[in-house]
Amino acid sequence: MTNPTLWRQEVTKLEAYVPGKSIEEVKKQYGLSEITRLASNENPYGPSPKAIAAMNAAAADSHLYPEPTSAELRSKLGELYGVDPSQILVSNGADNVLMLIGQAYVNPGDEVVYCVPTFSVYRTSTVVMGGVPVEIPLTADYKFNLEAMLAAVTDKTKLLYVCNPNNPTGTIVESAELEAFLKKVPPHVVVVLDEAYGEFIDVEGYKTGAEYVREGYPVISVHTFSKLYGLAALRVGYAIATPEVLAPVLAVREPFPVSRMANSAALASLDDVEYRDFILSTNREGLRYLGNELGRMGVGVTPSYSNFLFADLHRDAAPVVEALLRAGYIVRPCKAWGYPEHIRITVGSPEQNRGFVAALERILGA
């Protein structure tokens, strides 16, 4: 057993990330043959058929190293967002991009400000570099408190994280509020907009992080192919920022961060606009259906702009989560985020959503 005294000091301040229960784990534990996982915000339909064909074709070249800059993918993303490819960095998943940002920017003693609860990598990427996390509570309606974040900025502040939509609450800050916030950020601070769920925002005229980059704000916009495009297992994430802001991130990135299969699948996913629109449409319908059904059962539902719902059961969620597991449904309990009566529910297919609603109704009735 490794002696903890040999560990890097910052590592002793961290706890390993605890993912949601796996399908395999639940099948074995409860003796079930069919499991529906609505805990990890995965695309219930999987990747585009074009993406599957592309990754299968790319498998034949697995003996070759990938093209290290993902030039073709950056070019296609540049067309999508209206930015130059030099303003895009592609790496091994959005969480990897966030870790790279911490490595590139955070010195010992630097402060990093964000609201909680949110994605845990902001804290990890700060602490591992010897930085100081400055954690601000969300607003009463579970949104990032931008005014409180600005008030917390000091001359030691290096990064501000805004998760938009926020995980686990699914909330967003309005475009006008976000733009006013960016205008007040001092020049020694970089804002990281985590837009892993950004494609799901269905608000007319809502501004994306790429638009703020084009307008010259000191912003890094972070995205993933894991959610909307269903490539979670392949690990493809990217950042959009000016070349000057991306330069230190490129300096610490791995030489070959994205596999040939992942790169090919991402390219094909962007080409399959019809499939993307299908996923967005069914997700909107699923949000409406689940929101209505949960409300009918007396469950509190926070308005969501993502592919999941933050639901208040108004009772200890642990027994409900356990009963759902026995019924074959995995959801994410929110006790670790400080909300023991909440669960996070991924929007599934219509069939999965109906089955989940029926199971939850039986459990709550009992």
Results as ranks from 00 to 15, higher is better:
P243Q: 02
K335Y: 05
L231F: 04
I88S: 15
T242V: 02
S304Q: 07
G298A: 10
E72D: 14
V245Q: 11
P168W: 01
Y197V: 04
T118Y: 09
I88T: 11
N353Q: 09
G298H: 04
V219K: 07
L38R: 03
G300H: 03
P85T: 12
K143P: 15
P49T: 02
D312L: 15
K27G: 08
L32A: 09
G237E: 05
K184D: 10
D61I: 10
N3W: 14
L270S: 07
I363C: 12
P187Q: 03
H223C: 12
V173P: 08
Y229D: 11
N92T: 00
S306D: 13
C334I: 00
G198N: 13
Q87A: 11
K50N: 09
A39M: 06
L267K: 08
Q352D: 07
P44K: 02
L138M: 13
T242S: 15
T69L: 13
A71R: 12
Y105S: 02
E177V: 13
P117N: 08
S269C: 14
E341M: 08
N307E: 05
Q9H: 08
P44L: 00
T126F: 14
S40H: 00
L73I: 12
C334E: 06
E15C: 12
L246N: 00
L270H: 05
M261F: 07
E361Q: 13
Y289T: 09
L324F: 03
K27L: 06
A210R: 03
G216V: 09
L193N: 03
Y114R: 01
